[in-house]
Design a protein around this nucleic acid. Structure first.
Lengths: 142, 142
DNA sequence: CAGTATAACGCATAATTATAGAAAATATAT
DNA sequence: ATATATTTTCTATAATTATGCGTTATACTG
């Protein structure tokens, strides 16, 4: 019964790393990590942790809802140029998106400059720029 | 069976005017308007019309999702001064919110000016300013 | 330590939503 | 009109999620 905290931690890690559509998915994923429990327990965990199921049918951490919505609603495209990432947004939205990205702990970026509909992000190297692009695209559910 | 189009129209009107949490709610609301059908039919209507159920548990028209999310995520407060409406937003988000409000057909505003975290909206008169404030607040689910 | 309170859990089942399949209504073709 | 095809609907049921209740584990008190 002292599983609970560790299980919650595992759930956080799971929903961030893959798309979980149903509570049964989560039961199975947890089982592979040694956390055996029923759907009823997961239902309560989800309630306790404040997990949300997006309109797109995927569970997400409460703290990620804001960033996910901003990105889904306002980001149009993400392109790379070596270690630079260029994010195109809806007109007038670049500042809002940049603020949300900065506030998130995507620990990959050195800094960013936001104009009207474009954000320029400087990453340490090309690899991290790619990782950042992938992270943003993962947020664009729908 | 020629009910379908009229029923869809009624559904649009209902979900815009009140908070519908379940399909059974909608069945009952439709019944009071003379549209008798089962939950199964509503499930298909919702699918056909592209209605979404927000993470907050309320159904919404597909075309309202964007505006609703923008307002829920970025608008902090709405205050009145006679026929003026001042909308406070997250830092850097005023342009994005103003664009979304302009694009929506809330036919109440004469014009708007957006700064960094503030939008000033000029309405024809105090009554319409109040109506506009109410409309924006209704979009702020939760 | 025993006794009691609280928290976590599973089982069974309720509540909500989706769908397969048949029937009825409507449209189209002959 | 009659026959055929398509659309809309309902019934029944599956799939998913939530919850009442009893049980067990853990914490707390004296």
């Amino acid at each position: 019964m002292r599983q609970r905290n560790a299980r919650h931690e595992a759930i956080r890690e799971i929903v961030r790393s893959r798309y979980i559509h149903t509570q049964r998915d989560l039961v199975e994923e947890l089982a592979t990590r040694g956390f055996v429990c029923t759907q009823a327990t997961i239902s309560r965990d989800i309630s306790d942790m404040g997990l949300r199921k997006l309109t797109e049918g995927v569970y997400i951490l409460a703290e990620d809802v804001h960033l996910q919505r901003i990105v889904s609603d306002l980001v149009l495209d993400v392109v790379l140029a070596n270690n630079l990432v260029v994010v195109k947004t809806e007109t007038g939205s670049a500042q809002a998106v940049a603020a949300a990205l900065d506030a998130a702990d995507l620990p990959l970026l050195l800094g960013s400059i936001a104009g009207d509909d474009t954000i320029l992000i400087i990453a340490q190297d090309e690899e991290r720029a790619k990782a950042f692009k992938a992270a943003v695209n993962k947020l664009k559910v729908q």
